[in-house]
């Protein structure tokens, strides 16, 4: 009788331990992509679409993904073009991926260029959204030439809290002025790198999108 009771208690203990070990945020990934829509960069959005499709194909159920535009004031939920946390069920996740793709397609077709470029605002929004998503691995993709152009009165001299974040700059195109003085381009990249790394994040630049599959590990 005592032995049976002990067995029962042991079983209950195992079941309790098993249920206590349940973890909702283990290996999920969160990706936030900022798309520069200022000036002539809108011509590059087809490339951005390709990157988005690649990311969609690689994300799994439970992962989160958002795409936001970078415009005059990017620290706003209104700039998020599409966002999704994929359902646990693979079939539903596939459906969500298709819907996401359709929304991006629609945006790319109807986008209008903005006058200013607020990358920092977009970064702050990305940090906020990814922290809320409770993803295990957080990645911010910046599809831009990294040339920040703020409207007068906008304060963006704010330190970024990027601990545990991976920031990847994609397709950082050279401007006409960069061609005149390449140091501008290099300084721009170095400044962003310093800013990200001082915030605790890791920094990567991928310019050759042909090698995206081999370089970009989410």
């Amino acid at each position: 009788m005592i032995r049976r009771l002990c067995n029962l208690l042991g079983l209950l203990l195992i079941v309790t331990l098993l249920s206590a070990c349940g973890d909702d945020t283990p290996r999920t990934r969160g990706v936030y992509m900022l798309m520069d829509t200022s000036g002539t960069y809108t011509k590059e959005l087809k490339q951005a679409q390709r990157v988005i499709n690649y990311i969609l194909a690689n994300l799994q159920p439970g992962d989160s993904f958002a795409v936001a535009r970078v415009d005059t004031g990017s620290f706003s939920e209104k700039d998020i073009i599409a966002k999704v946390t994929f359902d646990d069920r693979p079939s539903r996740a596939n459906q969500q991926k298709r819907e996401f793709r359709d929304r991006i397609d629609h945006f790319v077709k109807t986008v209008k260029g903005s006058a200013y470029t607020d990358i920092t605002g977009g970064m702050l929004q990305a940090i906020e959204w990814l922290n809320e998503s409770r993803a295990g691995h957080k990645t911010i993709l910046i599809f831009s030439d990294l040339k920040e152009d703020l409207k007068e009165g906008y304060v963006r001299d704010i330190p970024l809290q990027l601990g545990g974040f991976k920031v990847v700059a994609l397709n950082v195109t050279k401007l006409r002025s960069d061609n005149v003085d390449p140091r501008e381009y290099l300084n721009r990249l170095a400044a962003w790198q310093e800013r990200v790394e001082s915030g605790g994040g890791s920094w990567q630049v991928v310019n050759d999108l042909e090698r995206l599959e081999s370089v970009l590990v989410l």
Partner: peptide, 11 residues
């Protein structure tokens, strides 16, 4: 994973 989900973890 269609029935019980594929993201929750046990141990």
């Amino acid at each position: 994973s269609e029935m019980v989900g594929g993201t929750s973890m046990i141990m």
